[in-house]
């Protein structure tokens, strides 16, 4: 657990980067600091490993004041990933990853052995180990950056805009792998981003910062979308927050209709194994535009219903056999009831 207790950072010129921040970051979860530029999110992150020292207030990691420790030793126990990775250009990939173990006194051989394991863990082949950072793509560099941060197996990881310097496709794959990795490792992660979509996608908790280092809201992503604390948060979260919030709603309880129901004059065609092949009717064959299964979010189901020529999303079972249909109208009603329950629950 990381606690910010009334932390303020004021620069000599009077600028308040962070103002009276109190915040608790839970162990084993991803907490994302998000906000517009100049809101103090990066400053807050960098105060955790003492890259910046606060003007007043205390920061504790598992109850221990960070300022009580030697900065360099503290930092060796905290993983640190930055934008553009910040790899050491003069060291090979494997030696970059071995940096912290060597600093903490491990033999170079041992450190390299550990580095090789980590490279595989972050999805890089050992064939890359002897290359220099200039020989890697941005996405690969960022993976090495993550491996370097993990090398000493620190319980806490700080990540400053780790995925913002790569193109959207690579970013998406890095984010997926990051979530997979966190599923295995369960680190306490604090991440900074300016991208609210990234924050909602990755964060177990999202802390929205406003200008002047004020914490506007700390909430789970679903809650943030559904109940923004004020106009600033609502504005920052952006348009379509209702629709985006459906990402967090389970589709398991959606009522489905039988597969052979005729919808708007169309019928679902299936192959011999029962897999959906398309819609037929009006003398035409039309595509299904995809299918969903019980674990998907309401957002995915809604999207499929919109795309479907019949206005109905096809559900499939684990073997890919069609086992139900859901129409827009059904989804809309389901969402309405859910929202009604939630808002009544909030008020009462």
């Amino acid at each position: 657990m990381i606690e910010f207790d009334d932390v303020t950072k004021q620069y000599p010129d009077g600028t308040v980067a962070v103002g009276n921040l109190s915040l608790t970051i839970p162990t084993g979860a991803i907490t994302v600091f998000v906000g517009p530029s100049g809101c103090g999110k990066t400053t807050s992150l960098r105060m955790i490993n003492r890259m910046i020292d606060p003007t007043s207030g205390t920061i504790r990691i598992d109850g221990k004041d960070v300022t009580a420790q030697d900065p360099a030793l503290l930092r060796r126990s905290i993983g640190y990933v930055i934008q553009h990775a910040g790899l050491f250009p003069h060291r090979t990939v494997v030696d970059n990853v071995a940096t912290v173990p060597v600093l903490t006194g491990l033999s170079r051989k041992e450190a390299r052995k550990r580095a090789y394991e980590l490279l595989e863990r972050v999805g890089l082949t050992t064939g890359m180990a002897d290359r220099y950072p200039v020989q890697l793509s941005g996405g690969q560099q960022q993976r090495v950056g993550v491996a370097r941060a993990l090398a000493a197996d620190p319980p806490v990881m700080l990540m400053d805009e780790p995925f913002s310097a790569v193109d959207p496709v690579v970013r998406d794959s890095l984010q997926q792998e990051f979530l997979r990795l966190q599923g295995e490792l369960g680190k306490t992660i604090v991440m900074v981003t300016h991208d609210i979509d990234e924050a909602i996608k990755l964060g177990d908790n999202v802390a929205v910062f406003a200008e002047g280092g004020r914490l506007a809201q700390l909430a789970g992503p679903e809650d943030l979308l559904a109940n923004p604390a004020d106009d600033f948060v609502a504005g920052f979260v952006g348009r379509d927050r209702g629709f985006r919030g459906l990402s967090f709603a389970a589709s398991a309880d959606l009522p489905v209709e039988p597969v052979d129901t005729e919808v708007e004059g169309l019928r679902l065609a299936v192959d011999d194994a029962g897999r959906p092949t398309g819609w037929t009717g009006h003398g035409r064959a039309l595509p299904t535009e995809g299918s969903w299964s019980a674990g998907d979010s309401l957002r995915a189901v809604t999207d499929l219903a919109i795309l479907s020529p019949a206005g109905a999303a096809v559900r499939v079972d684990a073997d890919g056999r069609a086992d139900g249909l859901v129409r827009h109208a059904t989804v809309a009603e389901f969402v309405r009831v859910r929202q009604l329950e939630r808002l009544s629950g909030t008020d009462g």
């Binding site: 250009p89 003069h90 050992t126 890359m128 002897d130 220099y132 020989q135 690969q140």
Partner: peptide, 30 residues
């Protein structure tokens, strides 16, 4: 001087260049 900083590393034949760049698809090329 390390080959990583004086440009030699990006010029010479790449070591391990036969290996696939990454396990995931859609990785960008340096």
């Amino acid at each position: 001087v390390s080959p990583g900083v004086d440009g030699r590393a990006s010029r010479g034949p790449r070591r391990g260049s036969n290996a696939p760049a990454a396990l995931t698809a859609s990785e960008d090329v340096p």
